[in-house]
Design a protein around this nucleic acid. Structure first.
Length: 531
DNA sequence: TCACCTTACACGTTTGAATTGC
DNA sequence: AGCAATTCAAACGTGTAAGGTG
Protein backbone atom coordinates (compact mmCIF):
# COMPACT_ATOMS: atom_id res chain seq x y z
CA UNK A 1 0.00 0.00 0.00
CA UNK A 2 2.91 2.19 0.51
CA UNK A 3 3.28 2.45 -3.21
CA UNK A 4 -0.25 3.58 -3.57
CA UNK A 5 0.23 6.07 -0.85
CA UNK A 6 3.25 7.27 -2.65
CA UNK A 7 1.21 8.45 -5.55
CA UNK A 8 -0.17 11.19 -3.47
CA UNK A 9 -1.89 13.53 -4.01
CA UNK A 10 -4.00 11.48 -6.33
CA UNK A 11 -3.17 8.04 -5.14
CA UNK A 12 -6.54 6.57 -5.76
CA UNK A 13 -7.59 8.27 -8.87
CA UNK A 14 -5.34 6.36 -11.10
CA UNK A 15 -4.32 3.25 -9.30
CA UNK A 16 -1.61 1.15 -10.67
CA UNK A 17 -3.26 -1.66 -12.59
CA UNK A 18 -0.61 -4.04 -11.42
CA UNK A 19 -1.37 -3.22 -7.86
CA UNK A 20 -4.99 -3.61 -8.56
CA UNK A 21 -4.44 -6.97 -10.05
CA UNK A 22 -2.40 -8.02 -7.12
CA UNK A 23 -5.02 -6.85 -4.73
CA UNK A 24 -7.66 -8.54 -6.73
CA UNK A 25 -5.85 -11.82 -6.71
CA UNK A 26 -5.33 -11.52 -3.04
CA UNK A 27 -8.70 -10.41 -1.94
CA UNK A 28 -11.35 -10.90 -4.50
CA UNK A 29 -11.92 -14.52 -3.80
CA UNK A 30 -13.98 -16.04 -1.11
CA UNK A 31 -13.23 -14.65 2.26
CA UNK A 32 -10.48 -16.29 4.17
CA UNK A 33 -11.74 -18.67 6.71
CA UNK A 34 -10.59 -16.33 9.40
CA UNK A 35 -12.81 -13.57 8.18
CA UNK A 36 -15.91 -15.19 9.30
CA UNK A 37 -14.65 -16.38 12.58
CA UNK A 38 -15.06 -13.27 14.54
CA UNK A 39 -13.81 -9.84 15.19
CA UNK A 40 -10.32 -11.01 15.86
CA UNK A 41 -10.10 -11.59 12.17
CA UNK A 42 -9.87 -7.87 11.67
CA UNK A 43 -6.46 -6.70 12.46
CA UNK A 44 -7.37 -3.10 11.98
CA UNK A 45 -8.58 -3.10 15.49
CA UNK A 46 -11.34 -5.61 15.55
CA UNK A 47 -13.81 -2.83 15.67
CA UNK A 48 -17.13 -4.03 16.87
CA UNK A 49 -20.33 -2.12 16.84
CA UNK A 50 -23.46 -3.19 18.58
CA UNK A 51 -26.83 -1.61 18.32
CA UNK A 52 -28.38 -0.41 21.51
CA UNK A 53 -32.04 -0.93 22.17
CA UNK A 54 -31.88 -3.91 19.92
CA UNK A 55 -35.06 -5.34 21.33
CA UNK A 56 -36.87 -2.12 20.66
CA UNK A 57 -35.56 -1.98 17.14
CA UNK A 58 -36.61 -5.54 16.61
CA UNK A 59 -40.06 -4.81 17.87
CA UNK A 60 -40.42 -2.04 15.36
CA UNK A 61 -38.75 -4.00 12.65
CA UNK A 62 -41.10 -6.89 13.02
CA UNK A 63 -44.03 -4.63 12.41
CA UNK A 64 -42.31 -2.58 9.78
CA UNK A 65 -40.54 0.46 11.07
CA UNK A 66 -41.73 3.79 9.79
CA UNK A 67 -39.92 7.04 10.27
CA UNK A 68 -41.69 10.34 9.91
CA UNK A 69 -39.99 12.82 7.66
CA UNK A 70 -41.00 16.45 7.68
CA UNK A 71 -39.85 19.61 6.04
CA UNK A 72 -38.21 21.04 9.14
CA UNK A 73 -36.70 17.64 9.90
CA UNK A 74 -37.75 14.91 12.25
CA UNK A 75 -35.69 12.84 14.59
CA UNK A 76 -35.65 9.13 14.27
CA UNK A 77 -37.34 6.97 16.82
CA UNK A 78 -35.97 4.69 17.88
CA UNK A 79 -32.87 6.72 17.37
CA UNK A 80 -29.60 5.25 16.39
CA UNK A 81 -27.46 4.41 19.36
CA UNK A 82 -24.50 2.13 19.14
CA UNK A 83 -21.73 0.77 21.28
CA UNK A 84 -18.24 0.57 19.95
CA UNK A 85 -15.37 -1.58 20.98
CA UNK A 86 -12.08 -2.53 19.52
CA UNK A 87 -11.05 1.00 18.75
CA UNK A 88 -7.56 2.14 19.46
CA UNK A 89 -7.87 4.00 22.71
CA UNK A 90 -5.77 6.96 21.77
CA UNK A 91 -6.51 7.19 18.09
CA UNK A 92 -9.01 9.63 16.78
CA UNK A 93 -12.10 8.44 15.05
CA UNK A 94 -14.90 10.04 13.16
CA UNK A 95 -18.35 8.55 13.17
CA UNK A 96 -20.77 9.11 10.37
CA UNK A 97 -24.19 7.94 9.39
CA UNK A 98 -25.84 7.96 6.05
CA UNK A 99 -29.01 6.47 4.73
CA UNK A 100 -29.03 3.94 1.98
CA UNK A 101 -32.06 3.00 -0.07
CA UNK A 102 -32.98 -0.56 0.53
CA UNK A 103 -34.14 -1.11 -2.98
CA UNK A 104 -35.36 0.64 -6.05
CA UNK A 105 -39.01 0.77 -5.23
CA UNK A 106 -41.59 3.10 -3.98
CA UNK A 107 -44.12 1.63 -1.63
CA UNK A 108 -47.65 2.22 -0.59
CA UNK A 109 -49.58 1.09 2.41
CA UNK A 110 -52.48 -0.96 1.27
CA UNK A 111 -54.69 -3.18 3.34
CA UNK A 112 -52.43 -3.53 6.29
CA UNK A 113 -49.29 -4.17 4.38
CA UNK A 114 -46.73 -2.49 2.27
CA UNK A 115 -46.89 -2.99 -1.44
CA UNK A 116 -44.61 -1.96 -4.18
CA UNK A 117 -46.07 1.09 -5.86
CA UNK A 118 -43.55 1.55 -8.59
CA UNK A 119 -40.01 2.53 -9.15
CA UNK A 120 -38.20 4.65 -6.66
CA UNK A 121 -37.95 8.31 -7.28
CA UNK A 122 -34.58 9.71 -8.18
CA UNK A 123 -32.46 9.92 -5.13
CA UNK A 124 -32.42 13.24 -3.36
CA UNK A 125 -29.12 14.82 -2.49
CA UNK A 126 -27.38 12.37 -0.30
CA UNK A 127 -26.24 13.61 3.06
CA UNK A 128 -24.02 12.22 5.71
CA UNK A 129 -24.54 12.98 9.34
CA UNK A 130 -21.37 13.47 11.25
CA UNK A 131 -21.52 12.70 14.92
CA UNK A 132 -20.99 15.99 16.73
CA UNK A 133 -18.28 14.50 18.89
CA UNK A 134 -16.17 13.74 15.88
CA UNK A 135 -13.30 13.50 15.88
CA UNK A 136 -12.74 11.93 19.25
CA UNK A 137 -10.47 9.36 20.74
CA UNK A 138 -11.33 5.75 20.61
CA UNK A 139 -11.57 5.77 24.36
CA UNK A 140 -14.22 8.44 24.11
CA UNK A 141 -16.32 6.46 21.69
CA UNK A 142 -15.98 3.31 23.73
CA UNK A 143 -16.57 4.67 27.18
CA UNK A 144 -20.26 5.05 26.55
CA UNK A 145 -22.81 4.42 23.90
CA UNK A 146 -22.76 6.70 20.91
CA UNK A 147 -26.07 8.32 20.20
CA UNK A 148 -27.18 9.85 16.96
CA UNK A 149 -30.16 11.38 18.66
CA UNK A 150 -29.93 14.65 16.83
CA UNK A 151 -29.92 13.12 13.43
CA UNK A 152 -32.93 14.38 11.55
CA UNK A 153 -34.71 13.20 8.48
CA UNK A 154 -36.40 15.49 6.03
CA UNK A 155 -38.24 15.28 2.76
CA UNK A 156 -37.22 18.77 1.83
CA UNK A 157 -34.82 18.36 -1.03
CA UNK A 158 -33.80 21.96 -0.60
CA UNK A 159 -33.07 21.51 3.06
CA UNK A 160 -30.30 23.75 4.25
CA UNK A 161 -30.02 22.47 7.76
CA UNK A 162 -27.95 19.46 6.94
CA UNK A 163 -30.68 16.97 7.63
CA UNK A 164 -30.67 13.71 5.78
CA UNK A 165 -32.99 13.96 2.82
CA UNK A 166 -35.22 11.02 2.08
CA UNK A 167 -38.19 10.27 -0.09
CA UNK A 168 -41.45 9.42 1.50
CA UNK A 169 -42.74 5.91 0.95
CA UNK A 170 -39.26 4.63 0.26
CA UNK A 171 -37.29 2.23 2.32
CA UNK A 172 -33.89 2.99 3.78
CA UNK A 173 -31.48 1.77 6.33
CA UNK A 174 -28.79 3.67 8.14
CA UNK A 175 -25.15 2.91 7.71
CA UNK A 176 -22.65 3.67 10.37
CA UNK A 177 -19.14 4.53 9.37
CA UNK A 178 -16.19 4.46 11.69
CA UNK A 179 -13.26 6.32 10.31
CA UNK A 180 -9.92 6.52 11.96
CA UNK A 181 -8.96 10.08 11.31
CA UNK A 182 -7.70 13.01 13.27
CA UNK A 183 -9.82 15.47 11.43
CA UNK A 184 -12.24 15.64 8.61
CA UNK A 185 -9.55 16.10 6.09
CA UNK A 186 -7.72 13.03 7.25
CA UNK A 187 -10.77 11.01 6.46
CA UNK A 188 -9.65 11.15 2.95
CA UNK A 189 -6.95 8.58 3.43
CA UNK A 190 -8.17 6.92 6.50
CA UNK A 191 -9.38 3.46 7.16
CA UNK A 192 -13.03 3.22 7.74
CA UNK A 193 -15.42 0.48 8.46
CA UNK A 194 -19.10 0.38 7.80
CA UNK A 195 -21.80 -1.24 9.84
CA UNK A 196 -25.42 -1.80 9.14
CA UNK A 197 -28.11 -3.40 11.22
CA UNK A 198 -31.04 -5.15 9.62
CA UNK A 199 -33.30 -4.08 12.41
CA UNK A 200 -32.83 -0.43 11.61
CA UNK A 201 -34.37 -0.48 8.19
CA UNK A 202 -37.43 1.68 7.88
CA UNK A 203 -39.92 3.22 5.54
CA UNK A 204 -39.85 6.97 5.34
CA UNK A 205 -43.34 8.40 5.62
CA UNK A 206 -44.92 11.78 6.10
CA UNK A 207 -47.67 10.26 8.20
CA UNK A 208 -47.78 6.95 9.90
CA UNK A 209 -49.45 4.26 7.89
CA UNK A 210 -49.37 1.32 10.24
CA UNK A 211 -51.28 2.11 13.41
CA UNK A 212 -49.29 -0.48 15.28
CA UNK A 213 -46.20 1.54 14.61
CA UNK A 214 -47.96 4.62 15.86
CA UNK A 215 -48.81 2.90 19.08
CA UNK A 216 -45.32 1.61 19.52
CA UNK A 217 -43.92 5.08 19.01
CA UNK A 218 -46.35 6.61 21.43
CA UNK A 219 -45.61 4.07 24.06
CA UNK A 220 -41.86 4.19 23.74
CA UNK A 221 -41.08 7.76 22.84
CA UNK A 222 -41.09 10.00 25.91
CA UNK A 223 -41.98 12.97 23.79
CA UNK A 224 -45.19 11.28 22.83
CA UNK A 225 -46.30 10.60 26.34
CA UNK A 226 -49.10 13.02 25.85
CA UNK A 227 -50.71 10.61 23.47
CA UNK A 228 -50.67 7.67 25.78
CA UNK A 229 -54.12 6.72 26.82
CA UNK A 230 -53.31 6.85 30.48
CA UNK A 231 -52.19 10.40 30.01
CA UNK A 232 -54.09 13.46 30.99
CA UNK A 233 -54.75 14.61 27.51
CA UNK A 234 -58.45 15.15 27.58
CA UNK A 235 -58.59 16.06 23.99
CA UNK A 236 -56.91 12.87 22.87
CA UNK A 237 -59.02 10.77 25.14
CA UNK A 238 -62.11 12.49 23.95
CA UNK A 239 -61.16 11.65 20.43
CA UNK A 240 -60.85 8.02 21.25
CA UNK A 241 -64.45 7.41 21.97
CA UNK A 242 -66.47 5.08 19.78
CA UNK A 243 -67.84 7.96 17.83
CA UNK A 244 -64.36 9.04 17.07
CA UNK A 245 -63.40 5.61 15.89
CA UNK A 246 -66.47 5.53 13.78
CA UNK A 247 -65.44 8.78 12.26
CA UNK A 248 -61.95 7.55 11.67
CA UNK A 249 -63.38 4.46 10.10
CA UNK A 250 -63.98 6.52 7.03
CA UNK A 251 -60.28 6.77 6.66
CA UNK A 252 -58.82 3.85 4.79
CA UNK A 253 -56.68 1.51 6.75
CA UNK A 254 -57.42 3.02 10.08
CA UNK A 255 -60.41 1.29 11.49
CA UNK A 256 -59.19 -2.11 10.65
CA UNK A 257 -56.21 -1.80 12.88
CA UNK A 258 -58.07 -0.06 15.58
CA UNK A 259 -60.75 -2.63 15.47
CA UNK A 260 -58.24 -5.33 15.94
CA UNK A 261 -56.82 -3.69 18.94
CA UNK A 262 -60.18 -2.79 20.27
CA UNK A 263 -61.08 -6.40 20.11
CA UNK A 264 -59.43 -6.46 23.45
CA UNK A 265 -61.95 -4.52 25.46
CA UNK A 266 -61.88 -0.89 24.73
CA UNK A 267 -59.23 0.31 22.47
CA UNK A 268 -60.54 3.57 23.76
CA UNK A 269 -58.95 2.60 26.99
CA UNK A 270 -55.31 1.94 26.99
CA UNK A 271 -53.86 -0.86 25.04
CA UNK A 272 -50.65 -0.26 26.84
CA UNK A 273 -51.81 0.50 30.29
CA UNK A 274 -48.99 0.63 32.68
CA UNK A 275 -46.41 0.76 30.03
CA UNK A 276 -44.30 3.38 31.68
CA UNK A 277 -41.04 2.01 32.83
CA UNK A 278 -41.71 -1.41 31.58
CA UNK A 279 -38.65 -1.76 29.50
CA UNK A 280 -38.02 -5.02 31.25
CA UNK A 281 -41.27 -6.32 29.98
CA UNK A 282 -40.57 -5.35 26.46
CA UNK A 283 -39.27 -8.71 25.49
CA UNK A 284 -42.33 -10.42 26.79
CA UNK A 285 -44.58 -8.06 24.97
CA UNK A 286 -42.49 -8.50 21.93
CA UNK A 287 -43.12 -12.18 22.00
CA UNK A 288 -46.78 -11.48 22.07
CA UNK A 289 -46.40 -9.13 19.19
CA UNK A 290 -44.43 -11.68 17.32
CA UNK A 291 -47.22 -14.12 17.67
CA UNK A 292 -49.70 -11.62 16.45
CA UNK A 293 -47.40 -10.70 13.68
CA UNK A 294 -48.14 -13.84 11.83
CA UNK A 295 -51.44 -12.30 11.26
CA UNK A 296 -50.64 -8.63 11.11
CA UNK A 297 -47.11 -8.23 9.97
CA UNK A 298 -46.84 -6.25 6.79
CA UNK A 299 -43.78 -8.26 5.91
CA UNK A 300 -45.36 -11.63 6.24
CA UNK A 301 -43.80 -14.90 7.06
CA UNK A 302 -40.83 -14.51 4.78
CA UNK A 303 -39.47 -11.73 6.85
CA UNK A 304 -39.44 -13.87 9.87
CA UNK A 305 -37.68 -16.52 8.00
CA UNK A 306 -35.04 -14.09 7.07
CA UNK A 307 -34.43 -12.49 10.37
CA UNK A 308 -34.88 -15.46 12.50
CA UNK A 309 -33.02 -17.93 10.47
CA UNK A 310 -30.17 -15.53 10.68
CA UNK A 311 -30.64 -15.31 14.34
CA UNK A 312 -30.83 -18.69 15.87
CA UNK A 313 -33.03 -18.85 18.85
CA UNK A 314 -31.27 -17.83 21.91
CA UNK A 315 -28.41 -16.26 20.10
CA UNK A 316 -27.59 -12.65 20.49
CA UNK A 317 -28.53 -11.32 17.15
CA UNK A 318 -26.64 -8.18 17.66
CA UNK A 319 -23.51 -10.01 18.40
CA UNK A 320 -23.90 -12.24 15.45
CA UNK A 321 -24.17 -9.31 13.17
CA UNK A 322 -21.38 -7.41 14.59
CA UNK A 323 -18.80 -10.03 14.85
CA UNK A 324 -18.74 -9.58 11.13
CA UNK A 325 -18.05 -5.91 11.53
CA UNK A 326 -20.11 -5.02 8.56
CA UNK A 327 -23.41 -6.34 9.64
CA UNK A 328 -24.91 -8.44 6.92
CA UNK A 329 -28.33 -7.14 6.41
CA UNK A 330 -29.31 -8.62 3.14
CA UNK A 331 -30.78 -11.80 4.41
CA UNK A 332 -33.01 -9.90 6.68
CA UNK A 333 -34.09 -7.33 4.20
CA UNK A 334 -34.72 -9.66 1.41
CA UNK A 335 -37.50 -11.74 2.82
CA UNK A 336 -39.56 -8.69 3.14
CA UNK A 337 -38.84 -7.73 -0.40
CA UNK A 338 -39.31 -11.21 -1.64
CA UNK A 339 -42.68 -11.01 -0.11
CA UNK A 340 -43.36 -7.97 -2.16
CA UNK A 341 -41.80 -9.16 -5.29
CA UNK A 342 -44.75 -11.31 -5.87
CA UNK A 343 -46.55 -8.14 -6.70
CA UNK A 344 -43.58 -6.19 -7.73
CA UNK A 345 -43.55 -4.53 -11.07
CA UNK A 346 -40.17 -6.04 -11.65
CA UNK A 347 -40.05 -9.27 -9.80
CA UNK A 348 -37.10 -11.47 -10.10
CA UNK A 349 -36.25 -14.80 -8.78
CA UNK A 350 -32.65 -13.80 -8.66
CA UNK A 351 -33.38 -11.76 -5.63
CA UNK A 352 -34.75 -14.67 -3.85
CA UNK A 353 -31.72 -16.65 -4.64
CA UNK A 354 -29.54 -14.11 -3.01
CA UNK A 355 -31.73 -14.23 0.01
CA UNK A 356 -30.79 -17.70 0.79
CA UNK A 357 -27.50 -16.58 2.08
CA UNK A 358 -25.26 -17.18 -0.80
CA UNK A 359 -21.64 -16.99 -0.05
CA UNK A 360 -21.32 -13.96 -2.16
CA UNK A 361 -23.69 -11.73 -0.34
CA UNK A 362 -22.26 -12.83 2.91
CA UNK A 363 -18.78 -12.15 1.82
CA UNK A 364 -19.51 -8.76 0.42
CA UNK A 365 -21.16 -7.79 3.59
CA UNK A 366 -18.15 -8.75 5.53
CA UNK A 367 -15.75 -6.77 3.52
CA UNK A 368 -15.05 -3.61 5.39
CA UNK A 369 -15.56 -0.58 3.28
CA UNK A 370 -12.36 1.26 3.18
CA UNK A 371 -11.69 4.43 1.40
CA UNK A 372 -7.99 4.18 1.56
CA UNK A 373 -5.50 2.56 3.75
CA UNK A 374 -4.14 4.66 6.46
CA UNK A 375 -0.47 5.24 6.26
CA UNK A 376 0.50 5.37 9.82
CA UNK A 377 4.08 5.92 8.97
CA UNK A 378 3.38 9.02 7.07
CA UNK A 379 3.55 12.52 8.32
CA UNK A 380 -0.14 12.51 8.74
CA UNK A 381 -0.94 14.01 12.07
CA UNK A 382 -1.76 11.29 14.44
CA UNK A 383 -1.70 10.20 18.00
CA UNK A 384 1.95 9.52 17.96
CA UNK A 385 2.10 10.09 21.64
CA UNK A 386 0.15 6.95 22.02
CA UNK A 387 2.75 4.83 20.44
CA UNK A 388 2.95 3.17 17.09
CA UNK A 389 -0.23 2.81 15.17
CA UNK A 390 -1.17 -0.66 14.15
CA UNK A 391 -1.08 -1.21 10.50
CA UNK A 392 -4.26 -2.13 8.82
CA UNK A 393 -4.72 -5.78 8.37
CA UNK A 394 -5.08 -7.56 5.12
CA UNK A 395 -8.82 -7.18 5.29
CA UNK A 396 -8.33 -3.53 4.83
CA UNK A 397 -6.79 -4.10 1.50
CA UNK A 398 -9.83 -5.92 0.43
CA UNK A 399 -11.65 -2.76 1.14
CA UNK A 400 -9.27 -0.91 -1.04
CA UNK A 401 -9.94 -3.44 -3.64
CA UNK A 402 -13.57 -2.70 -3.42
CA UNK A 403 -12.98 0.84 -4.27
CA UNK A 404 -10.20 0.57 -6.68
CA UNK A 405 -11.88 -2.12 -8.63
CA UNK A 406 -15.00 -0.13 -8.87
CA UNK A 407 -13.06 2.76 -10.12
CA UNK A 408 -10.88 0.79 -12.41
CA UNK A 409 -13.83 -0.26 -14.40
CA UNK A 410 -15.36 3.15 -14.34
CA UNK A 411 -13.01 5.83 -15.40
CA UNK A 412 -15.83 8.26 -15.58
CA UNK A 413 -16.33 8.09 -11.90
CA UNK A 414 -13.27 10.12 -11.26
CA UNK A 415 -14.83 13.33 -12.34
CA UNK A 416 -17.25 13.58 -9.54
CA UNK A 417 -18.41 16.82 -8.19
CA UNK A 418 -18.87 17.65 -4.63
CA UNK A 419 -22.41 18.24 -3.69
CA UNK A 420 -23.38 21.49 -2.20
CA UNK A 421 -26.96 22.39 -1.55
CA UNK A 422 -25.99 25.98 -1.94
CA UNK A 423 -24.78 25.67 -5.40
CA UNK A 424 -26.32 24.60 -8.62
CA UNK A 425 -23.67 22.01 -8.97
CA UNK A 426 -26.22 19.34 -9.24
CA UNK A 427 -24.46 16.76 -11.30
CA UNK A 428 -23.67 15.04 -8.11
CA UNK A 429 -20.98 12.56 -7.76
CA UNK A 430 -23.40 9.73 -7.46
CA UNK A 431 -25.18 10.66 -10.64
CA UNK A 432 -23.39 9.23 -13.49
CA UNK A 433 -25.09 10.82 -16.37
CA UNK A 434 -26.31 14.23 -17.32
CA UNK A 435 -29.93 14.70 -16.62
CA UNK A 436 -32.33 17.43 -17.46
CA UNK A 437 -34.12 17.15 -14.16
CA UNK A 438 -33.00 18.42 -10.88
CA UNK A 439 -31.97 14.92 -10.04
CA UNK A 440 -30.44 12.44 -12.29
CA UNK A 441 -32.67 10.07 -14.14
CA UNK A 442 -33.87 7.07 -12.27
CA UNK A 443 -31.62 4.21 -12.17
CA UNK A 444 -32.61 1.25 -14.25
CA UNK A 445 -34.03 -0.93 -11.59
CA UNK A 446 -33.33 -4.52 -11.86
CA UNK A 447 -33.76 -7.16 -9.31
CA UNK A 448 -30.13 -8.02 -9.58
CA UNK A 449 -29.22 -4.48 -8.97
CA UNK A 450 -31.37 -4.41 -5.94
CA UNK A 451 -29.73 -7.39 -4.46
CA UNK A 452 -26.32 -5.98 -5.05
CA UNK A 453 -27.23 -2.72 -3.54
CA UNK A 454 -28.33 -4.37 -0.40
CA UNK A 455 -25.02 -6.07 -0.22
CA UNK A 456 -23.11 -2.89 -0.56
CA UNK A 457 -22.21 -4.00 -3.99
CA UNK A 458 -19.52 -1.66 -4.98
CA UNK A 459 -18.51 -4.05 -7.69
CA UNK A 460 -21.23 -2.90 -9.97
CA UNK A 461 -20.41 -3.20 -13.54
CA UNK A 462 -21.35 0.28 -14.59
CA UNK A 463 -21.13 3.70 -13.20
CA UNK A 464 -24.80 4.09 -12.73
CA UNK A 465 -25.19 1.08 -10.56
CA UNK A 466 -22.13 1.70 -8.58
CA UNK A 467 -22.82 5.33 -8.07
CA UNK A 468 -26.33 4.78 -6.95
CA UNK A 469 -25.10 4.08 -3.49
CA UNK A 470 -22.55 6.64 -2.52
CA UNK A 471 -20.74 5.65 0.58
CA UNK A 472 -20.96 9.15 1.78
CA UNK A 473 -22.63 12.25 0.77
CA UNK A 474 -20.60 15.09 -0.39
CA UNK A 475 -21.37 17.52 2.29
CA UNK A 476 -21.17 17.07 5.98
CA UNK A 477 -22.51 19.14 8.78
CA UNK A 478 -20.62 19.34 11.97
CA UNK A 479 -20.39 21.50 15.03
CA UNK A 480 -18.61 24.71 14.41
CA UNK A 481 -16.17 23.93 17.15
CA UNK A 482 -15.00 20.84 15.38
CA UNK A 483 -11.27 21.20 14.90
CA UNK A 484 -10.38 21.47 11.28
CA UNK A 485 -7.28 21.64 9.32
CA UNK A 486 -6.81 24.48 6.98
CA UNK A 487 -7.09 22.13 4.09
CA UNK A 488 -10.38 20.83 5.26
CA UNK A 489 -11.73 24.32 5.30
CA UNK A 490 -11.05 24.71 1.65
CA UNK A 491 -14.27 22.92 1.04
CA UNK A 492 -16.22 24.90 3.50
CA UNK A 493 -18.47 27.42 1.89
CA UNK A 494 -18.99 29.34 5.05
CA UNK A 495 -22.60 28.51 5.62
CA UNK A 496 -23.73 27.88 9.11
CA UNK A 497 -26.64 26.23 10.68
CA UNK A 498 -27.31 27.40 14.16
CA UNK A 499 -29.27 24.86 16.09
CA UNK A 500 -30.14 27.06 18.99
CA UNK A 501 -27.46 25.60 21.11
CA UNK A 502 -24.91 24.21 18.78
CA UNK A 503 -23.59 26.10 15.81
CA UNK A 504 -23.16 23.88 12.82
CA UNK A 505 -21.47 24.42 9.58
CA UNK A 506 -21.37 22.57 6.37
CA UNK A 507 -18.29 21.36 4.66
CA UNK A 508 -17.73 19.29 1.64
CA UNK A 509 -15.69 16.32 2.58
CA UNK A 510 -14.10 14.14 -0.04
CA UNK A 511 -14.40 10.97 1.89
CA UNK A 512 -13.77 9.03 -1.24
CA UNK A 513 -10.89 10.63 -2.97
CA UNK A 514 -11.17 8.37 -5.92
CA UNK A 515 -14.67 9.54 -6.46
CA UNK A 516 -14.14 13.24 -6.18
CA UNK A 517 -12.27 15.85 -7.99
CA UNK A 518 -9.16 16.42 -6.05
CA UNK A 519 -9.76 19.99 -5.17
CA UNK A 520 -8.36 19.48 -1.73
CA UNK A 521 -4.79 20.14 -1.06
CA UNK A 522 -2.45 17.55 0.22
CA UNK A 523 -1.05 17.88 3.70
CA UNK A 524 2.16 19.06 2.17
CA UNK A 525 0.27 21.67 0.26
CA UNK A 526 -1.75 22.84 3.16
CA UNK A 527 -1.47 26.48 3.46
CA UNK A 528 -2.63 28.65 6.23
CA UNK A 529 -6.19 28.76 5.13
CA UNK A 530 -7.93 28.93 8.41
CA UNK A 531 -11.36 29.87 9.41
C1' DT B 1 -61.96 10.22 -5.54
C1' DC B 2 -57.78 9.00 -3.73
C1' DA B 3 -53.20 8.94 -1.83
C1' DC B 4 -50.15 11.66 0.02
C1' DC B 5 -48.46 15.98 2.06
C1' DT B 6 -48.60 20.20 4.98
C1' DT B 7 -49.77 22.73 8.83
C1' DA B 8 -51.56 24.09 13.34
C1' DC B 9 -52.21 22.35 17.59
C1' DA B 10 -51.81 20.45 22.41
C1' DC B 11 -49.01 18.11 25.41
C1' DG B 12 -44.77 16.27 27.50
C1' DT B 13 -39.71 16.57 27.59
C1' DT B 14 -35.46 18.87 27.46
C1' DT B 15 -32.51 22.57 28.14
C1' DG B 16 -30.17 26.29 30.14
C1' DA B 17 -30.44 30.66 32.42
C1' DA B 18 -31.77 32.58 36.75
C1' DT B 19 -32.22 32.02 41.50
C1' DT B 20 -31.18 30.26 45.94
C1' DG B 21 -28.50 28.26 49.55
C1' DC B 22 -24.25 26.89 51.46
C1' DA C 1 -16.53 34.74 45.49
C1' DG C 2 -17.34 30.21 44.10
C1' DC C 3 -19.95 26.19 43.66
C1' DA C 4 -23.92 23.07 43.64
C1' DA C 5 -28.79 22.41 43.78
C1' DT C 6 -33.22 24.00 42.50
C1' DT C 7 -36.67 26.48 39.85
C1' DC C 8 -38.82 27.91 35.82
C1' DA C 9 -39.86 29.35 31.25
C1' DA C 10 -38.87 28.77 26.51
C1' DA C 11 -37.71 25.75 22.96
C1' DC C 12 -38.10 21.42 21.22
C1' DG C 13 -40.14 16.82 19.93
C1' DT C 14 -44.21 14.30 19.28
C1' DG C 15 -48.64 12.39 17.10
C1' DT C 16 -53.22 14.07 15.76
C1' DA C 17 -56.56 16.16 12.95
C1' DA C 18 -57.99 18.89 9.32
C1' DG C 19 -57.30 20.73 5.14
C1' DG C 20 -54.60 21.11 0.83
C1' DT C 21 -52.62 19.29 -3.45
C1' DG C 22 -52.11 16.88 -7.68
Amino acid sequence: MQSIRGEFPTPFCDPNPAILQELKSNFSGPPPASMGTGPEAYLQGSIRMTLEDLELWKTFHEIGTEMIITKPGRRMFPHCKVNLSGLIQCANYILLVDMVPEDGFRYKWNKEKWEVAGKAEPQPPCRTYLHPDSPALGSHWMKQSVSFLKLKLTNNTLDQHGHIILHSMHRYHPRFHVVQADDLFSVRWSVFQTFTFPETSFTAVTAYQNTRITKLKINHNPFAKGFRDEGTNKKRRANKNPACIEKRAKLPGVLTEDSKDSSSPGFCQSSYDGYDGEEGRLAKRKDEDAVKEEQYSPWGAERQQGVRTDSPAGADTSDIYNTEQLVPAAASYQPYRAHEYGKSPSPSSSVGSSVTGSGRSSYESRVPDIATVADHNSSKPGPSHCGPQPLPGPQDYSGVLNMTMAQAGKPGVIGHHIYSPYSTEQPLGQWSGPGPAQYPPPHPLTADYTAQAVHHGYHHGNVGEWSQYPLFSYSCWFPAQTPLTGAALQGWNGSYHVDRRIPWRKMNVPLFPNRFPLTFSTPQQQGGKQE
